[in-house]
Design a protein around this nucleic acid. Structure first.
Lengths: 216, 216
DNA sequence: GTAATGTTTTACCAACCGGTCAAATTATCA
DNA sequence: TGATAATTTGACCGGTTGGTAAAACATTAC
């Protein structure tokens, strides 16, 4: 049979699993650095080490590839926020959330850039996810933070903007890596920059949210 | 004469000024939302309301258009940081820097996205500017902040990461606007979000940098 | 082994892309 | 006004793009 991939209902073969993996890995590389429109199937095929038609045998369109990639990555991308625990102590929860996000920026910069590209260009492919699952999750965690503030455990602040601030500062080290390296110069652009960033951000957010006269 | 634009040494015509303006405006719109590789000359021509060859009469290549756009925008983009004043009081300088950056994110989101796209995709066209003029300016201002910290006027912190944090948090509202709107929902996605953001960020950075036991 | 199924390749297509050219049109100014 | 220079356009070009068709090749199940 030569039924196109999407029409197959049977369970996938070993080769299918391997090749789809290989393709999505290559697609991540390419989409992350050029965005959807700036990427070409030929490029992805070359990175994956296979011919274009072969690639199109597994994913019938460029869109399907992108879709599959987003679906696979989005879920794990939100894990750090899911771990955010209402029962924990506010300071240590926020501190470790920052640390987890920073680790993801360091260890999975391509995933970060994939989303950055997508959102920057108007999120044409993931708008539903933003307004759906993502919003729901953020709403939930924002409520936790709001409760902490109300209970006097941290300074009063807008929980949504707090979350945005944590996202932006941490993802900055993945998305704007070239700029960070360029500005820091060769001497300070090594892996140590993530430690420095972690130290700074923890200080900023922890003491920035401490209760003091006038803010509580 | 039909000399290409770049070869003309005489002073520019009224029509030239107007059309180049029109083109760069359209180019900003398109490049900002699709990145360099994702944008097409036809698209820009359509937005500018002129034919493709007409557009290429003013800028001989797509690169030349992008170059001209970057050159024009980069300078004004750095103005808020230039205004950062060593003689002012640390708290008010940082506070007003945040405010200026946030105003730019609100009033010139396309400019912000133009750079974001460029840097995200590896800064292939502006790497020199990053390592040159930008780095120089940041180095200078970082020294100012370091001096403030040394003099005990603000908490000790890494000035570079402080600057990165201000950049990322403020530009987030331009670059990731769809996401911000999506998460905030229709009710809170109005212009008021910039006021809320300003309030939050000023609180975060000001009290985050205040001197207290153990940090000074 | 062989038949059925799954995979890969070669050759190809129509649309689009960045860019050119020459002719037509319009603005400028003596 | 007319000559000259500046601007605009339509037709076109070679290369690239996303995607297809069909046949060759490999794998698996019996």
């Amino acid at each position: 049979m030569v039924l196109p991939r999407a029409a197959r209902t049977q369970r996938r073969t070993r080769i299918q699993e391997e090749k789809e993996e290989l393709i999505l890995e290559a697609a991540l590389e390419v989409f992350a650095t050029h965005g959807f429109r700036g990427s070409t199937i030929d490029q992805i095929a070359e990175v994956a080490g296979m011919s274009k038609p072969n690639l199109l045998y597994y994913f019938r369109t460029k869109e399907a590839m992108h879709r599959a990639l987003i679906d696979r990555v989005l879920d794990s991308w939100l894990d750090p926020l899911r771990e955010f625990d209402a029962e924990g102590s506010p300071v240590s929860e926020i501190r470790s959330y920052i640390r987890r996000k920073l680790e993801m920026a360091r260890d999975f910069p391509r995933e970060s850039r994939l989303f950055a590209n997508e959102i920057l260009q108007g999120a044409p492919h993931i708008e539903d996810e933003l307004k759906g699952p993502l919003k729901t999750l953020v709403d939930e965690k924002a409520e936790v933070i709001r409760a902490w503030a109300k209970a006097g455990k941290i300074a009063k602040c807008d929980p949504y903007h707090l979350i945005f601030a944590i996202w932006s500062t941490t993802q900055h080290y993945a998305d704007f890596d070239v700029q960070v390296r360029g500005v820091l110069g060769d001497e300070r652009a090594g892996e140590g920059r993530f430690e420095d960033a972690a130290r700074f951000l923890e200080q900023l957010f922890v003491s920035g949210l401490e209760i003091r006269d006038g803010t509580a």
